[in-house]
């Protein structure tokens, strides 16, 4: 008992940082609940990737193979994983709350009749967990009751796993997928083209809000600063709602949760739902012309200024700093 199956999500033939976060949280959970941490890599030919994740301190890796697991789809993946959980006798299934993790884990939980905790931020010694509710305005201590439990972790709340001295063994398993659980057809993935770092992986995030006034201004005013800082670009929900930028840039309760070393909020008022996605950043900078804006209540450094003047100036200062 106490064994933890870690769902090792992969994208385009590699593991994003969020997967290493899941591994680390899985190792912590296994240690605290007295079990083994076992990573699962699902795919049509997952062996090579399974070998990769084996280096990160888990006690075993299962390469779960099936033609229907070539692309991620919820129903086939949930069916294959549920069968594996039962066969392996695992007590926990853990994933990071990425788009895939959020889509898959509840379906898997229902298939197992297991309770599920979404986006936990801490694993307590007494068997309970902490998770945010109400856009992070309440931290709940929760208890899961049942022989099997499903958990997603918040990517920013745990560190990424580091390579261990030796690699674990990889075991290949052919997945069992009932045809009734393979009703979804993957059509296409239209990747947003960008040379910038991923929002959830970046050391610096620069986000724009409604104050930018237009999508064009994101390009001409904000992006030069973003690139000068080597940052990822984010946006508030208001900017997404107004159609300035696509939704996958959204930082907040209903978008991505980030906790970079430096978060620069430009023209963002600081609505509760935005703060929910960035208030754990190490250093927060706010640039806003309204000195009453709530964003200043969480900012380490605030600059009351017209962003259309301040942002190009800051890009210029960054350039100077780099060359000094």
């Amino acid at each position: 008992m106490g064994d933890v199956l870690i769902f090792a999500e992969h994208q385009g033939g590699h593991f994003p940082k969020t997967t290493l976060t899941a591994v680390n949280a899985g190792l912590e959970l296994a240690k605290k609940r007295g079990g083994n941490a076992i990573a699962v890599v699902a795919g049509d030919a997952p062996e090579a990737l399974a070998g990769e994740i084996a280096k990160y301190g888990v006690s075993k890796v299962i390469a779960l193979a099936h033609a229907n697991l070539k692309n991620y789809v919820a129903d086939a993946h949930a069916a294959a994983l549920a069968a594996l959980v039962k066969k392996a006798g695992a007590e926990f299934v853990l994933a990071t709350a990425t788009a895939v993790g959020k889509d898959l884990a509840p379906r898997l939980a229902a298939r197992l009749g297991a309770p599920m905790a979404s986006e936990i931020t801490a694993i307590n010694d007494d068997g309970t967990y902490i998770r945010p509710m109400y856009a992070g305005n309440a931290m709940a201590t929760i208890e899961l009751d049942g022989p099997v439990k499903v958990i997603t972790v918040r990517g920013t709340a745990f560190d990424a796993a580091k390579p261990a001295d030796s690699a674990a063994s990889v075991e290949k398993a052919d997945a069992e997928i009932d045809p009734s659980a393979a009703k979804t057809e993957f059509v296409s993935f239209n990747q947003t083209k960008s040379d910038r770092p991923q929002l959830t992986e970046a050391r610096i995030v620069v986000s724009g809000g409604r104050g930018l006034k237009s999508g064009d201004n994101f390009k001409t005013v904000l992006e030069p600063l973003v690139d000068e800082m080597g940052a990822a670009m984010g946006a508030s929900r208001a900017a997404v709602d107004a159609g300035f930028v696509p939704n996958d840039l959204q930082v907040g309760q209903t978008g991505k949760v980030v906790a970079p070393e430096l978060y620069v909020a430009v023209g963002i008022s600081g609505a509760i739902q935005h703060l929910a996605g960035m208030k754990d950043s190490k250093i927060i900078v706010a640039i806003n012309k309204d000195e009453e804006a709530p964003i200043f209540n969480v900012a380490d450094y605030g600059l009351v200024a017209d962003l259309f003047k301040a942002v190009p100036e800051m890009a210029e200062e960054m350039k100077k700093l780099k060359h000094s």
Partner: peptide, 21 residues
């Protein structure tokens, strides 16, 4: 799934204002 208790999140202290870029 039982919620045992709720707590307010740790409060982040407001920092300071700077005068220029």
């Amino acid at each position: 799934l039982k919620i045992k208790t709720l707590a307010a999140p740790p409060k982040r202290q407001a920092g300071r204002k700077v005068g220029s870029v």
